[in-house]
Simulated assay, not measured.
Amino acid sequence: MELPLTRVCLVIGRFHPLTLHCEALLKAKREAGFDVKVCIIGANAPRSHRYPFSAEEQIAMIKAAGFEAIAIEEVLGRQARHAQFVSIAPEADILLFDHAYGRFLKEDWRGGVVVEVPEAILNETLQAKNCWLAGQQFEHVSKAIAQIFDSSVPPSQRALLWEEECYVQRYRSSWAVAPYPPVLATVDILIQNGGKVLLIQRGGDVGKGQWALPGGFVEPDETVLDAARRELCEETGAELDFQTAMACLKRSAIFDDPSRSSRIRAITHAFHFDVSGHLMSTLEAGDDAAALKWVSTEEALTMRSQMFEDHFLMLEYLLTDGEKRAID
């Protein structure tokens, strides 16, 4: 006689890919009498070296293992994230595959017990992903999952993602000699002119081809505002003197999610300048920007799947007068 399912286990994470040990954990919860609900983080996100599988492909992996799943979009702030999980299962134990969410869920969650999966399982997942990206033999996944691998990303795109992964690994290694884990300051700039905003297309080693806000690292001898003016000029040719920048500054915000950047811990100070009515210099993509374009604010707010890392979330926050909070 089959036992009734008496409690919900909300499984939260990203499955790049779903490994055999991940499957075993889900099945163990079901065998223990839990109603297993799988929640995939990152709906409508672009592919990257860190997250090479779409939400739909991850859902297919979960289904191949015999479970159902839903996907949720990235949001800003712990309160908004918490609300997403409450809307799915307000009373549930949580099995967490994304340790970044463990920072707040263990403190905030009142619906049940929060358990993070062992680091070894996450490392195994990373190993399987990197072997697949590198075109090497990979283990730890079922035949059904391996078939989803082969049908998801063409080899040419996979090779580009592997190049990104290798670049990020080298970048991190270059900081390995630092006495403390580095935390760097960056700036990002939203330029609005009437009903349009300016975006750049990334041409660098990470996120190549994706759209982003202009920006970059703060130099040791400059303020964040001066860094924003410099980066804007280097990447787009747009020049804002200090007085014009202050007159056009509509709002600013700090974005500091510890996992927002795949390269390094980076805290960014984002500026929103509305230059409507001000004469703009001739614009031209420069530095590591491959191209630039003006898009309507309405179109920009539909570009989540085309934008680099958390740049859509920054743009959305700045364009909606901070309705979606950057810091709780």
Rank of each mutant, 00 (worst) to 15 (best):
F97N: 07
Q58R: 14
L126D: 14
G77T: 14
R7E: 12
D226E: 09
F255N: 00
V206F: 02
G112L: 05
I189F: 01
N44V: 01
R202K: 12
C131R: 10
F149H: 07
A247L: 12
Q169N: 13
G102C: 06
L95P: 00
M246C: 13
A291S: 15
V153M: 08
P214W: 03
T320V: 06
A247P: 02
Q192A: 14
S48T: 11
I12F: 05
M314F: 06
L133V: 10
P182D: 13
E56C: 01
R229Q: 11
F242D: 10
V275W: 06
S259N: 08
A43V: 00
L76E: 03
V86M: 10
K63G: 04
T282G: 07
Q136Y: 05
A55Q: 01
F15V: 00
Q84T: 07
A245T: 12
V115D: 06
E222P: 03
V141Q: 14
K208M: 04
R260W: 13
H49R: 06
G322N: 11
Q243C: 08
G112P: 09
D241I: 07
R81H: 11
G135M: 10
T6V: 13
S156D: 15
L249D: 03
L10I: 13
A65Y: 07
K250W: 03
K250T: 02
A326R: 00
A43G: 04
G216L: 03
R251N: 04
H311G: 00
V295L: 01
P182F: 15
A60K: 04
D310N: 10
I40H: 14
V115Y: 13
C233E: 12
E73T: 02
E31H: 07
A71D: 15
S87V: 10
W211F: 04
A65T: 03
F53Q: 02
R7F: 09
G237M: 08
I148V: 08
I12T: 12
M61W: 05
H311Y: 01
T282A: 07
P155L: 10
C131P: 00
R158N: 06
D328G: 09
A212H: 05
H16T: 03
L20W: 02
I70S: 14
P182L: 13
L184E: 12
T320Q: 14
R50S: 03
P4K: 06
P4W: 05
I40F: 05
A270D: 10
L292I: 04
Y180Q: 14
T320S: 15
G13S: 09
G13Y: 02
I121G: 11
I145L: 12
G215K: 04
A245C: 11
K29I: 05
H272D: 13
F104I: 02
H82S: 07
P182V: 15
F67G: 01
T236G: 06
Q127R: 10
P220H: 02
R230W: 07
V11C: 09
L3H: 13
S296N: 09
M303L: 11
Y317A: 15
L283D: 00
A326W: 00
V86A: 06
